[in-house]
Design a protein around this nucleic acid. Sequence first.
DNA 1: GTGCGTGCAAACCGTTTGCAATCGG
DNA 2: CCGATTGCAAACGGTTTGCACGCAC
Lengths: 141, 141
Amino acid sequence: MKEIKEKRNTLQKRIVSDVFCSMNNHPSAGMVYEAVNEKFPGISKATVYRLLAEAAEEGKILRLKLTDANDRYDITTKKHYHVVCRCCGAVADVDTQIDDLRMAENAVGCEGFLVEGCHVEFVGVCEECRNQKTYKTEKNI
Amino acid sequence: MKEIKEKRNTLQKRIVSDVFCSMNNHPSAGMVYEAVNEKFPGISKATVYRLLAEAAEEGKILRLKLTDANDRYDITTKKHYHVVCRCCGAVADVDTQIDDLRMAENAVGCEGFLVEGCHVEFVGVCEECRNQKTYKTEKNI
DNA sequence: GTGCGTGCAAACCGTTTGCAATCGG
DNA sequence: CCGATTGCAAACGGTTTGCACGCAC
């Protein structure tokens, strides 16, 4: 099913991995690229994008598609959900005791589908944004 | 807060609205554009995008951001969720009796956040895709 | 040496925008 | 008439890709 592919240990691979692991804010590929280039200028944007996408395909990290922003990458690969701040875009991990598939069984509209999982994303305002009173109170979610 | 803006009734507005309302598959802006141009060639893509975005901002329709695809538009504005077919991208409406905010209260990780709502998206395989045996059984959700 | 991995720039794709022309009120 | 709305094409932003070079093995 999968071709045998010999993987090489390159400097950029180590750097991207290190930098990404040191970030704990569910960064987008662009954010990782910037962080990488701050410490080790000269690494190509394409390489960062490629390495992250590759790691995600290998299941080493998670590629999140949240509602408002770009793709985010997540070190935590075990099943969990996220809260997103609608003001600053901050992302945090969330654990719930929800049983996906049981929820789908009780839902109206899933009948034709073989439901295999679900994404849950809470939307709100993080503490910092609430403290600076400028955030819009209207919640257009 | 909002300027008084006199809205005009234009031909393209009526056409886009009619075509969109006759589609029941949560189309993307591009899909609406194609459908519109099939029946009434000559309407600009920009106009279709503008009209849909405008209708969404006015709250007349919903602009969905689902995980894998482009923005989709939804005639149903009342609160509900969606199931997405991971093979063909088909979208269907789902109703659940979930209480968003109570779910957030019981979730670990939302503490810092003022949670205002949540998006739930079931992922699976629709009936048609299951019938044609070619769909990948591996579920990478 | 072989060929995977990289850097660069260009392509990509959906979407948005600037501007002049047009048409509704 | 006037200015909201349109069409066009160009710009946009994040991401991907083609290709020649360079480095890991």
